[in-house]
Amino acid sequence: MGRSPEPGQAAAESALKEAGLAKRLWALTLTFGKFGGITFGGGYAIVALLEEELVRRKGWLTQDELFNIITVGESTPGPIAVNTATFVGYRLAGVLGGCVATAALVFPAWLVIVVVSGFYLQFRENAWVAAALGGIRVAAIVLIARAFLRMGHGVPRNAANALAFALAFLLVAVLGRNALWVIVGGLLYGVLWYGVRPRLKGGRP
């Protein structure tokens, strides 16, 4: 009661998981509502936010779980931000949590568009809006770069992984291939390299 939360520790996680359903749903609403209101520029901005806020600060997720969520999100239909919100919500508070987190993520975006749609030409040509967005866009890039470095540290370092990383990066960044097929390729690589290969060599992993 009235205890100040310890930042970024596992204590926060267990405290939340033991909290009542209403409290968990409220925390999900606040967190994903905030994400919905400040993410610009595509799905990976929210991935970066999840990494910083949910993995580092709140401890709602482990980095491994975040990897799994991104993999699932990239290989299933729908926007990746929505997919991750649903998944995290489900993890913390079941089906209801998934629905609440998704609705909270979508609501600010929906509200802003409904309000702005009446005068969108003025909005688009406003120099101050453009100036703020220019700054936000650069901040989002920095955020994604930070998430990239941190998540890179979470992957075991070996030659095969380095090759898989380089291939994925080149295919998407340089050749502009669809991320879906790259992820499918990654899943196949995993089955063969981490699943089948140790079994062929004999000995149970």
Binding site: A164, V172, V182, L187
Partner: peptide, 27 residues
């Protein structure tokens, strides 16, 4: 199931590659 765990393990470096690609494309 081992195959699911292995597949997700293999997707990790690819996910990092995708995040890097997103940063570079935006930049």
């Amino acid at each position: 199931h081992w195959a699911v765990r292995a597949a997700l393990e293999g997707a990790k470096p690819v996910v990092v590659g995708l995040i890097g690609a997103a940063a570079v494309t935006l930049l």
